[in-house]
């Protein structure tokens, strides 16, 4: 089944086509979300939300880009929404703890990616930790290019930006990561 056929059947509300879509793209979406949120359970939950969103808004998909590009965009948006909610929750919890209310802070262990080679385990864990401190756009660019292995062309289409500005983003991301890693290794 071609992509156009699949899209047409999805727009017709065919559930079999939807199952086919999940089978085709679940690993791609799950890996992207996992690299972004760095938590296994949350990544599964968000992957589910991505596909539900796809099902709900397939009628609005114009087909200007590839289906995978559209899926990446939805996945990234979901991750950013999750991150913002999470940050707001953390702020609320720290406010509660200041006022002596039950505002316990969740301690999240360092993320160890299951697909990492043993020799690189410590360094990759460190890099994931440093990534959390980057501004949103730099984090998305670095994660999609370095962790998901996408090309600059693909990422520029997903992020709806030019390759030139994507290169700038990557340069700044590397500089910022270098600074925080240097600080860590010096201490």
């Amino acid at each position: 089944m071609s992509e156009l056929q699949l899209i047409a059947e999805l727009k017709d509300g065919n559930q079999q086509a939807f199952i086919k879509l999940i089978d085709l793209y679940k690993h791609l979406v799950f890996n992207t979300v996992l690299n972004m949120v760095q938590q296994f359970e949350e990544a599964e939950d968000l992957t589910q939300e991505v596909f539900i969103q796809v099902f709900q808004s397939i009628q609005h998909f114009r087909g200007d880009s590839k289906l995978s590009t559209w899926l990446y965009r939805i996945a990234i948006t979901k991750c950013l929404d999750w991150q913002r909610k999470n940050n707001a929750k953390k702020r609320m919890n720290s406010m509660k703890s200041i006022f002596g209310l039950d505002g316990h802070q969740d301690i999240i262990p360092d993320f160890v990616h299951p697909g990492i080679q043993l020799a690189n385990k410590e360094k990759a864990t460190m890099l994931f930790k440093a990534l959390k401190q980057l501004p949103e756009n730099q984090r998305i660019a670095f994660t999609l290019i370095k962790a998901d292995g996408l090309s600059y062309e693909e990422v520029s289409e997903i992020m709806q930006t030019s390759i030139k500005s994507l290169e700038g983003l990557m340069h700044r991301a590397k500089e910022n990561l270098r600074k925080s890693l240097e600080q860590f290794y010096k201490s």
Binding site: H27, F30, G115, I116, N120, K123, A124, M126, K146, L181
Partner: peptide, 12 residues
């Protein structure tokens, strides 16, 4: 080395 540590990241 740390910056390159995603080079052989396998898909899950």
């Amino acid at each position: 080395e740390t910056l390159d540590s995603f080079a052989h990241l396998q898909k899950v």
